[in-house]
C-alpha cells in the first residue's frame, strides 16, 4: 500500500511537471488556473500544519506538539533556517515529555 502511494504519487507529480513543457503556454492566460494553483499550497500546507499539530486519528488533542510548533514559530520569526526550525520543534517537544510536562 505504501509502495503504491509512493509510485503513483511520484508518477502524478512528474506528469504535472512534464505537462507544463508539453501544453501550450497560453494556458497561463487563464487567471483562474493561475490563481488556484498558486493558492493550493497555502490552503493545504496550512491544513497540514493544523492537522499534524492537533490531530490524533479523528480526535483533536493538545500535547507536546503544540509547544513544538510554537517554538517553530519563534524560530521562523528569527529567520532560522529550515533544519533549525524543525530541530527546535522536535527538541522542545521531546524535552517537555522527558520532564513529564506534556504528553
Amino acid at each position: 500500500m505504501i509502495w503504491a502511494a509512493v509510485l503513483l504519487g511520484s508518477l502524478g507529480c512528474y506528469l504535472e511537471k512534464l505537462f507544463g513543457f508539453i501544453l501550450p503556454p497560453t494556458l497561463l492566460d487563464r487567471p483562474m488556473i493561475r490563481s488556484v494553483a498558486a493558492l493550493l499550497p497555502i490552503a493545504m500546507l496550512s491544513a497540514l500544519v493544523a492537522v499534524q499539530t492537533f490531530g490524533d486519528g479523528q480526535s483533536l488533542v493538545i500535547d507536546a506538539r503544540v509547544a513544538g510548533v510554537a517554538v517553530a514559530v519563534v524560530a521562523l520569526l528569527l529567520r532560522a533556517p529550515f533544519l533549525v526550525v524543525v530541530l527546535a520543534a522536535a527538541i522542545s517537544a521531546a524535552l517537555l515529555r522527558a520532564f513529564g510536562v506534556a504528553t
Partner: peptide, 19 residues
C-alpha cells in the same frame, strides 16, 4: 520520544511561512 511528531507540523509551517 524524540519529538519527531512535532517536527512534522513544524516542517509544514516552514514550507508555508514564505508564502
Amino acid at each position: 520520544v524524540l519529538g519527531l511528531d512535532a517536527a512534522i507540523p513544524a516542517g509544514f509551517l516552514a514550507l508555508l511561512w514564505p508564502r
